[in-house]
Every structure is written in C-alpha cells, then in structure tokens.
Design a protein around this nucleic acid. Structure first.
Length: 414
RNA sequence: GCGGGCGUAGCUCAGUCGGUUAGAGCACCAGAUUGUGGAUCUGGGGGUCGGGGGUUCAAUUCCCCUCGCUCGCCCCA
C-alpha cells in the first residue's frame, strides 16, 4: 500500500452521498417519532464483554468479525458491530426498567471485519428501533409496521418482500431445536461441510443455507410452525392477523431464522433482489431473553435494524443540493461591501456564496456551476444608489433592489 | 476466511500480438469576452498505465507477489 487510501471496507461520504444517507436517517427518524420512539445514542465502543454476552460466543460476529483492541489501561474494547447490545446495556446501567415500555430509535456507524462486497462494508451505517417492555404480539406488529412505514416513505417498499417467521417461545424453540438436531444428525452425510460445522454450534442456521444439498435435506426437515406449542401458535397468529388488518403484505418463510439464542417469536426480514447477495435491507425480531442474559431484569424486547447504505442504494435519486445565492462584487468598493452584505444575509438565513475571486464573468460562471438560483451584483453603479442588481439565474431577469430591501426581496429564493 | 473477474488522466474508457515523446470524450484551467453565467471556438495543465519484484537489449503489455475494487460462497443490515 504505497498510495494513501482509505482502510479497506471504509468510505468517504462526499456531500452527495451524505445527502443520500441523511435522507434515509431523517425519514426513519421522522417515522419513528410518529410511533413515539425517541432517539438514543449509545457509545460507538463498549467493553468487549457486552457483545460477547449478547451475541453468544459462537456467532460469527463475535468469533471473527469484531474490531477489538485493548485501550491504554488494558480494557478490552470493541467497536460496536450492531446496536441492540448497546441499547440493552444502556437500559441496564441506566436503571431504565422503571419506565417501561421504552421506545428507542438510533442511527450510526457499525463495524464488522468482513470481506467487503456490494452493500457490505467494514464501517457501515444502520438505523434501527427497539421496543422494550412489551411482551404482547402488539409489540411485534408495531415494530414491523413501523419498518414497513419507513420503507414506504423512502419509496422502496415495493422493491422489497417481507419474509416472516416465528421461532416460538423458549419452550417451543428448545423442543424444535432438539428435534431438528436429531433429524439433521441422522442425515449428516448429506450435509455440506459448512452445515456440518453449524450442526454443532448453530443448527437453526442450516435452515436458511443456500447450498443445494442442504436445501434438499432441509426441505424434508421438521418445520417450526408444526412444532409450536399452543401459546406460541396463538401469539404468531395474532401477529399475522394484525399485519393483515393493516394491509402489510408478507410471505411466510418457515426457514427464516435468527442465529442468536435469545430470539423468540417473530423473526422478519425485508429483502430485495436488487442488491445482489446482500438481500436483507431491514431485519429484526423479538429478543425477550436478551436483557436477562446480560444480567438485567427479565424484559421483553422487539426491534429491527436497517442498513443505510443498502437503503440508499435502493433509492435511485439523490436529493438535490440546496441552491445558494451568489454575491458578485464588481470592483474594490463592491468587494468590501460584499463581505458585510454576505454576513448580514447569512444571518438572515440565506445561503450566500461569495465567489472569492475573478471578474464578473468568471463569478457568474462559477455561480452557475454551483447551481445558484440568483446573483446579487454589487458594483460602483449600484453602490452609488445604495442598491444592488438582483439577477435571477434561471430566467436572466434583472432588477434593481435597495440594499435594505434585499433580505425581504430574496424570500422567494429561500 | 475461500473461489472467479478487473485495476491506463478527477470520471467513463480506447490502446500496446513487448519497441522512441501513452490517447479520446467528459471534467478542470486560460483566452476569445476588463459590468453579465449556461452555448461555441481556440489553447493549456494533468499519468510512477494500482504498488513491489522477476524475465528481457527493451515491460503499461509476459510471470510472480501484494494492495484495492467487484461477483459468488460465508455472514448478515
């Protein structure tokens, strides 16, 4: 690496990219607020333990994807690979259990040491929501509907499919898991090497393997829905009914799973064909066991996270840059006056571009490139009458405006 | 972490079956136009041909390594 380049899997967000990102974040935040979710910002790094405990020692994220280091006092620190653990930690350390239910929205960078690909970076960004303290199906419904609402506002809902499944409660889940392991063990000679490894540490994940051989085995495997106990089946039915009533379309996918142990009941994923291998755009589920696992009081939780880069890629237009007003001095006197005038107009809330250098022709040319909506010409002629020439750069129309009336006259360019 | 494809100007890409000063379009800068932008014309700047090593009289071109991008696996947002 001789040329100075960004670290693999990281990107600079130039203003155009930044606006695309911001639109995603602002849209999600605004929708979340309609449901009463307030923004939470947890630190970008936590003690490594926080993620080890929540994600489980066997997950890929923990075993090979974390950015972990020891700081100067020897603490083991990890750059957050996801935000749910941080929120749960904040819940516990802040003693927030008194005020349930709690509804949080978050946005920010996450870090995973993965092989970069389209829609997969080492520093990437997510928005997400967490609903704590609601054990009812209404919680699952609200969170899924909120996700669909965000996608709809972004204009990408019709480019995604909502895949839905349930893992059942703990009892159903454990029973199913045991049944599945028994079945797969009996047919392990037919499984891929990867799935063989998963059979040990994370058997449920074999259900969503892309490998053809695995799929053949999985097709005949016992399915989750038929292994649910009565309470779990009823719970899931209520979630489905709620979505039906609100017209949220979904397709049941009994092979959709979450790898982590604390997940239960609803598991869902909005996926798209448009992004190649990285099809999941917004995904989540219920994690009633999580906070307890971390040493907090038993607390229900449901939530999702969405990839900002992926959402941004699904949208095709870039939000336009704001159009400034160019202030164009002509001659020395104009130059001196322009500095003050720019100051005044900016304080009045206008985006003013001072051209810094060049003659009139140059500066207009530059104003044009910046997409300026109008230009204020300030030369000896204008100064003599205490006015400025206001030129509309779209129509070319010009008018003389007294300097003290300028701020008002510019209102239509705001 | 594994496998495939690709790295030539800021961008999109030609080109070299190994051979003198590596090209185009767009973008950029300047001039035509010292109080009027977008168009046009003229001129100009810009490349360690991703980096390192090897083969050769000679490498941007062939070989190896490496870095990066990309597609798939894996993982997931």
């Amino acid at each position: 690496m001789s040329k100075l380049q960004p670290v693999r899997g990281t990107r600079d967000l130039l203003p155009d990219d930044s606006r695309r990102h911001r639109l995603v974040v602002e849209t999600a935040r605004a929708v979340a607020e309609c449901y009463g979710y307030g923004e939470i910002e947890t630190p970008i790094f936590e003690f490594t333990e926080v993620f080890k405990r929540t994600l489980g020692d066997t997950s890929d994220i923990v075993t090979k994807e974390m950015y972990t280091f020891s700081d100067r006092s020897g603490e083991q620190i990890t750059l957050r690979p996801e935000n749910t653990a941080g929120v749960a930690r904040a819940f516990i350390s802040g003693g927030l259990g008194q005020r349930l239910p709690l509804k949080f929205f978050y946005a920010g960078p996450m870090f995973r040491y993965e092989r970069p690909q389209k829609g997969r970076l080492r520093q990437f960004h997510q928005v997400g929501v967490e609903l704590l303290g609601v054990a009812e199906p209404l919680g699952d419904i609200e969170v899924i509907v909120l996700g669909a609402h965000v996608l709809e506002k972004l204009g990408v809902l019709e480019r995604t499919t909502l895949e839905l499944n349930t893992l059942g409660d703990r009892e159903s889940r454990e029973a199913y898991r045991a049944k599945l392991v028994r079945y797969l063990t009996a047919r392990q000679s037919e499984l891929s090497d990867e799935s063989l490894a998963r059979l040990e540490r994370n058997p449920m994940r074999i259900l969503d393997s892309k490998n053809e051989r695995d799929r053949a085995v999985v097709a005949e495997a016992p399915s989750i829905p038929e292994s649910l106990n009565e309470a779990s089946a009823r719970f899931f039915q209520e979630v489905c009914d709620g979505l039906d009533r609100l017209g949220v379309r979904y397709s049941l996918n009994p092979h959709l799973v979450r790898g982590l142990d604390y997940y239960c009941h609803a598991a869902f994923e909005f996926t798209t064909e448009a992004l190649g291998a990285q099809g999941a755009v917004l995904a989540g589920g219920r994690y009633d066991g999580l906070i307890e696992t971390m040493g907090g009081p038993p607390t229900a939780g449901v939530g999702w996270a969405a990839g900002i880069e992926r959402l941004s890629m699904l949208r095709d237009q870039t939000p336009p840059a704001p159009r400034p007003i160019a202030l164009v001095p002509i001659g020395e006197a104009g130059e001196a006056k322009a500095l003050e005038l720019a100051h005044k107009l900016r304080h009045a809330g206008y985006a003013i571009e001072l051209g810094y250098r060049g003659n009139l022709s140059k500066r207009l040319k530059q104003a044009n490139k910046l997409g300026a909506a109008a230009a204020i010409l300030l030369g000896d002629d204008e100064l003599a009458q205490g006015s400025a020439t206001l030129r509309d750069l779209d129509s070319g129309a010009q008018e003389s405006v007294p300097l003290d009336a300028l701020a008002d006259r510019l209102a239509r360019y705001r």
